[in-house]
Design a protein around this nucleic acid. Structure first.
Length: 392
RNA sequence: GGAGGGGUGGGUGAGUGGUUAAAGCCACCAGACUGUAAAUCUGGCGUCCGGAAGGGCUUCGCAGGUUCGAAUCCUGCCCCCUCCA
């Protein structure tokens, strides 16, 4: 049974940056780790083989969505998540707490849990820490998350405190339910720190959550609208208060620059819908920043989107072709772009890890961030340069 | 030759007396997307001035006309399409 238990080994540190490994019944995964998002038991547009091919090791799925459709029982009967979606590696599920937050108008939060209407058919449901945990046990992921209350950016201290206290009580409840069920230790349970944008509440939440012996600790409630300075600040603050020997997971974060900044502040795990979501809308990552392949200027670019990328799309197709696929609304375009963005981010994690192991994370980070321009700044600059050249 | 239909902004296509610088869609430009209700959403798109509010100018095949007012009505001209010969 011991080899089926979840564990984490911290292997090396380079300043605050950490390299390690998580071990799960479905295999190990190196950290720092980026987990592609597979909300509805699929990384949108890609087969499990394709996700593996770009370097995906752990995938994140969502208990809320699967509970509503096709239902936990169904997934369970079809071989749990691993069998159902045919993903052989580790899986992490989110509890559904975030959905209650992001689908605001449909829910009502009480101390007992969250009452909400299905976005699919309007039916009413009531999630409690107990149900959210049992759902995740039923789905059978390697790592499951506590049911928490995420709160909107800009909420008052009173509201944040209320949500935070609730999250702490729910965390204890999730922990108890999980232990009683016998799922532990083969299935890990992570706690989630909340506290909004208040320093003292973040401190308080970190203390409260770390007091419960979870298998890992997550920083929640960030990347919901606050600026980068706050995102990085709270990440650093919370990470410094979490146990050294447990993985630290920054939930919902994963733009290339944020991954580097997160690792620099002691984070081991990330998940994010951003790389795949923006890919479906034509935004692709390159070492110089994000580009929008739909733009006309790519219509005749013979070379790949990213010269330095080893993904299938970049190895085989011109940017002009991918541009065309998007313009023609052909589904292959978004598949290639999704694979590329995942490859970009996953390769970034590989390089980050290598640099930590060689004690050169800081210079790696400086080089990467010095070159990478978030959003479309890269193309804007490229534009400007060309314009200047033409005028000369 | 006969009968009918039509010419609108980059394209398509609504509009048939004022509320129309002219719907919608496409194209184009710009932006957003971070524990995925998203292959989605937002803004711009005649031209000039303005930071903006707003204002000026020029537009609905061409030329005249009616009217306080015309893309819309009348006359002539040019062009296109369909059917019949």
């Amino acid at each position: 049974m011991a080899d089926h238990a979840f564990s984490f080994e911290l292997q090396h540190t380079d300043g605050p940056a950490r390299a390690g490994e998580i071990r799960t019944p479905h295999g190990p995964a190196p950290t720092p780790l980026f987990m592609p998002v597979a909300t509805q038991a699929t990384v949108k547009g890609l087969t499990p083989e394709e996700v593996s091919e770009v370097g995906g090791q752990v995938v994140l799925s969502n208990a809320y969505h699967l509970y509503l459709r096709p239902g936990v029982q169904t997934v369970n009967a079809l071989g749990q998540l691993h069998g159902f979606m045919r993903w052989k590696g580790p899986i992490l599920t989110d509890s559904g707490g975030f959905q209650a937050f992001s689908m605001g108008s449909l829910r009502k939060v009480t101390d007992e849990g969250i009452r909400f209407r299905s976005h699919l058919d309007g039916s009413e449901h009531h999630f409690t820490p107990n149900l959210a945990t049992m759902n995740q046990i039923g789905l059978g992921a390697d790592i499951i998350m506590c049911f928490d209350q995420c709160i909107a950016y800009g909420a008052s201290e009173k509201e944040v405190r209320q949500a935070m206290d609730r999250t702490h009580r729910w965390a204890a409840e999730c922990h108890r339910v999980h232990r009683d069920s016998g799922a532990w230790p083969s299935q890990a349970l992570f706690g989630i720190v909340q506290g909004g944008t208040f320093d003292h509440l973040r401190d308080e939440s970190s203390e409260a959550i770390r007091a419960i012996p979870f298998d890992g600790y997550a920083v929640g409630g960030l990347a919901v609208g606050e600026d980068k300075e706050q995102l990085y600040g709270f990440t650093k603050q919370v990470a410094s208060l979490l146990p050294e020997d447990k993985p630290r997971y920054l939930m919902g974060v994963g733009s290339p620059e944020d991954l580097v900044e997160g690792v620099a502040r002691g984070i081991d795990m990330f998940d994010c819908a951003l790389p795949t979501r923006v890919a479906r809308n034509g935004a692709m990552f390159t070492p110089d920043g994000r580009i929008d392949v739909k733009k006309k200027r790519f219509s005749e670019q013979h070379g790949p989107v990213d010269e330095e990328c080893d993904c299938y799309g970049c190895a085989n197709y011109s940017a002009a072709y991918i541009h065309h696929l998007f313009r023609a609304r052909e589904i292959l375009g978004l598949r290639l772009a999704s694979a590329h963005n995942l490859r970009f981010v996953l390769q970034l994690m590989e390089r980050i890890r290598a640099s930590i192991l060689e004690n050169r994370f800081e210079s790696f980070s400086r080089d990467f961030l010095g070159r990478y321009r978030p959003t479309n700044e890269a193309s804007r600059q490229e534009h400007k340069l060309r314009w200047l050249q033409e005028r000369r």
